[in-house]
Computed example of a mutant assay.
Amino acid sequence: MAPTVTVVKGDITTVQADAIVNAANNAMRGGGGVDGAIHRAGGPAILADCVARFPDGLATGDAGWTTAGDLPARWVIHTVGPNHRAGQTDRSLLTSCYRRCLEVADELGARTVAFPLISAGVYGWPLDDAVDAAVETLSAAGSAVEEARLVAFSDATYASIRARLDA
């Protein structure tokens, strides 16, 4: 069964869910955007767990989990989205991020998962296609996750996701 896909506007680091998805870089050592915000809010336990679990980082399109540290979740599911600005334009890498996150969530027993819009920020994936990829993939995935909550940081992103879900 596919999860129910919902949208909220806000800061993903404050969302209560079983798992929060981090749009990470390949090195898995923190960074900017969502990645930096999650590492700052979650504290040093997340980085320590990343170093222990992912000594060689993660491949683009893959996902893995760590503790959530001080975040209001049990786990952080880290995924590496494609960097559109750097020429990684294969949409299957983006959709793989969402599928792999749900697979990891199923392994953990997570029922609610909060997602950022992967690759739509600093990695430059076009907003409309990023929204379509997220909603299509999450809505069609077989998973025990009950709710996949897309967390929009900006009004424009929220409006785009809301319009797609209402269509």
Rank of each mutant, 00 (worst) to 15 (best):
V104T: 15
T137W: 06
A41F: 04
V7S: 01
E103H: 13
A24Y: 08
L47Q: 08
S96R: 03
R99Y: 03
A130P: 00
P3G: 07
D132I: 05
P126I: 12
G36E: 04
H84R: 09
A105R: 05
G57R: 10
P82D: 06
V21M: 12
D128P: 15
V21A: 13
L138F: 01
C50K: 01
A63D: 08
N26E: 15
T157R: 08
A63C: 06
F54V: 09
E146V: 07
A24T: 14
G121E: 03
A156W: 14
A167E: 15
T89F: 07
A24D: 12
G124K: 09
V151K: 08
V113T: 11
H84D: 10
R149I: 02
A120S: 15
G109F: 02
T13W: 00
A73S: 06
D129G: 10
C101N: 07
G36V: 04
V34N: 08
G87N: 08
R99M: 06
G30H: 13
A48D: 12
H78T: 01
D35P: 14
C50L: 01
R74N: 15
V21E: 07
V34E: 07
I77E: 05
I77S: 10
E103N: 14
L102D: 00
A41K: 08
T112I: 03
Y123P: 14
H78N: 07
L47M: 10
G81N: 12
V80I: 07
L117G: 09
